[in-house]
């Protein structure tokens, strides 16, 4: 069981694209040799900003509900596991339905695999591999007190909204303290299109202005 007091916090704005998490991820014993983390350029044409994407471990995982083989299980401590190997029929339902785009399909293996928070480690109270190596604190595994001390201007949020569907997650995202919305409205971020049509200068989809980055990166406590 993952100890109750330990939580996973993500802060994509802090990502520097170093790929440490990608390489460390493949060292995990539960998915040996295969990296389950995604490192995405948010909008490669207009910004160097990258974002690490781990499984958010939803309270009511859509991936598990749409699985025809009932292969995806959530442990009592809230970690959504990779598809059970005897059951997965590689239909790709989970890959398409996950609102965060996390599961990976491996057609040759007829198997879906995903980030399982390095369950061999986290269930023993150790940090997931990605959080162990992340130099910028974009991926952090620890206690609420630790994250509050390190990020005095941030607070975690674990409610996301996709259209009319609200999704609560075990993994939390850092947002400005005191200005945290009720939920992170993901679809609202889509209003600017990658082609730039209708974008205001500096508010384009994928373009993360430096002042925004600075606001989250260089808060008191910095990247300690």
């Amino acid at each position: 069981m993952v100890p109750d007091h330990l939580m996973f916090f993500i802060d994509p704005n802090r990502c520097i694209g170093c790929q440490s998490c990608v390489h460390a991820c493949s060292e995990c014993d539960t998915h040996k040799g295969m990296s389950m983390i995604h490192l995405e350029y948010v909008d490669r044409q207009r910004s160097v900003q990258t974002a690490p994407v781990v499984c958010m471990h939803c309270d009511s995982p859509t991936c598990a509900e749409v699985c025809p083989a009932d292969a995806i299980k959530r442990t009592p401590d809230g970690v959504v596991q990779s598809a059970r190997k005897p059951r997965c029929v590689a239909c790709n339902n989970c890959v398409l339905a996950c609102p965060f785009g996390v599961p990976k399909s491996n057609p040759g293996l007829e198997l879906m695999m995903k980030c399982d928070m390095c369950y061999d480690r986290s269930s023993a109270g150790l940090k997931p591999m990605c959080a162990t190596v992340c130099p910028s604190g974009a991926l952090f595994f620890g206690t609420q007190e630790q994250v509050e001390m390190l990020r005095p201007r941030s607070e975690p949020i674990n409610r996301f909204r996709f259209g009319r569907q609200e999704v609560a997650t075990k993994v939390r995202m850092m947002v400005p303290r005191g200005r945290a919305p009720e939920f992170v409205d993901v679809v609202a971020a889509m209003e600017g299109r990658p082609d730039g049509a209708g974008d205001e200068p500096g508010r384009g989809d994928g373009f993360v202005p430096v002042d925004m980055l600075m606001a989250s990166l260089y808060e008191d406590g910095g990247s300690r």
């Binding site: 994509p12 909008d43 919305p181 971020a189």
Partner: peptide
């Protein structure tokens, strides 16, 4: 795009505050 959008949403919140995350 689903993987990119939460990061964008976070950046928007840092830039605009809660109004950026209004329900649509």
């Amino acid at each position: 795009c689903r993987r990119r959008l939460p990061a964008l949403a976070q950046a928007t919140i840092w830039g605009d505050g809660p109004s950026a995350a209004r329900p649509n």
